[in-house]
Design a binder for these strands. Structure first.
Lengths: 229, 229
DNA sequence: GACGATTTGGACAAGGCTGTCTAAATTTGT
DNA sequence: ACAAATTTAGACAGCCTTGTCCAAATCGTC
């Protein structure tokens, strides 16, 4: 009550901890059961909290759902940007470096709990909350894709790759390294690590066959011709 | 009752027509609302049928859902195989032919009503009906992917492509030509035709850069064509 | 036109869920 | 240890949904 004492974050710590555990439990239940099928009692039970506490924190089911998506988007985004920071700028072995990057991206951002949940919620309820998922689109793909594209552009500028349109190359890179995981993703499964590595390896090899500097030292003029194109 | 009179298909025609319209309406509602949120009254209304008729035909909600998935799987599969039959075996302009194939595959099998619905139901309810979607997996990707791979193997055997593993190449082909449509698919949208063509064009160009015959000083006309690409 | 099968609309019970309210128990900061 | 805030358990009303039942209307065929 006294002025000047913890002006904003008044409810100390157990409060926020409970909020977190509620959002976490809700994410799991919304994913498993869908918005309509999600049961507040079940969410409360999985969060280790009474139902009333859920309502105290989040008001109603819809507000809780929105909080879940916001939280997941934010956490996934920070993960993705942290991983993009590990993109190989000064490649030693470009193939190995790109495979490593692709594997990190998958394991840290796409196949982990938050990534799986966010993807499923977008697919399942995306049409029901257009403005919420438009926000995700701006904050997610709208910012991460150009960031990855910029990294590829830099590799091309450094002479390590031959790229016409970096945006297209970035999207195709993601399509290639995930090409073998599509069915698993569709059914909501989590690919094993060796499957991720396999898909990334095949994808990067093809990517480099298309965009890598031609190793055919036979004719140097062909290289320059392709580089100009 | 007399022997030899319409032994199997006894219920004449309006019956089957109603069954169809119920399954169609149910597909739409299940997709929009999810299994839990789907309302039998709404399905009946959209089918132009009374609720009791829905129960007469399909017993209960779960059986109706299973019938929907079976129907969609079957229809999508026939569409996919029909499209695979148009794969270019004797390519004139390989790039144009592959782009055309990719666009047909998208428009006839992936972006059409059945394809969109089936994809969404798999993503949304796949985990709830493991054996049902295992069946889909065998009948769908399990049969169509090898069929496409065989077509690529044939092109490689004919000297039109340089492919190490046709299965990998087929999956990467699909990943590439759909690379630019991922976000739209995620949110349940339908890409415009020009977006499909654009993604297919970019994807096929990259695919051919990776798997196309190297313009190894063989024919000058091919070289210039690729240089322009 | 007549007959049997199908469809219809409406009523109905049983059950589940959301969101609110209360009073008691518990935690938190000082 | 105290006081305020938070959490809890339980009850509750209101609403919606599924699946069943039944009598009347309709359809399709002979």
């Amino acid at each position: 009550m006294r002025p000047g004492v913890s002006p904003d974050i008044f409810p100390p710590r157990g409060h926020e901890a409970k909020r977190l555990s509620i959002v976490d439990a809700a994410a799991g239940v919304f994913c498993r059961e869908g918005f309509a099928g999600a049961n507040i009692d079940l969410i409360a039970a999985e969060a280790g909290v009474s139902r009333q506490t859920v309502y105290n924190h989040h008001g109603d089911k819809e507000k809780l759902f929105i909080a879940v998506v916001r939280d997941l988007t934010e956490r996934c985004n920070t993960g993705i940007f942290a991983t993009i920071a590990t993109f190989p700028d000064q490649p030693g072995d470009l193939e190995a470096d790109l495979i490593g990057f692709a594997v990190r991206l998958n394991q840290n951002c796409i196949c982990n709990r938050d990534g799986k949940f966010l993807r499923k919620l977008i697919q399942t309820e995306g049409e029901r909350y257009p403005e919420l998922f438009a926000e995700w689109r701006e904050q997610g793909p709208g910012r991460t894709w150009p960031a990855i594209a910029a990294r590829f552009a830099r590799l091309a500028y450094g002479g390590h790759l031959v790229i016409d349109d970096p945006d297209v190359a970035a999207r195709q890179f993601l399509g290639l390294v995930n090409a073998e995981l599509q069915t698993t993703f569709m059914l909501g499964g989590t690919p094993r690590e060796d499957e991720v590595v396999q898909s990334a390896t095949n994808g990067v090899r093809t990517f480099l066959r298309a965009f890598g500097k031609r190793p055919s030292a036979a004719s140097a003029k062909k290289q320059t011709a392709l580089a100009n194109a």
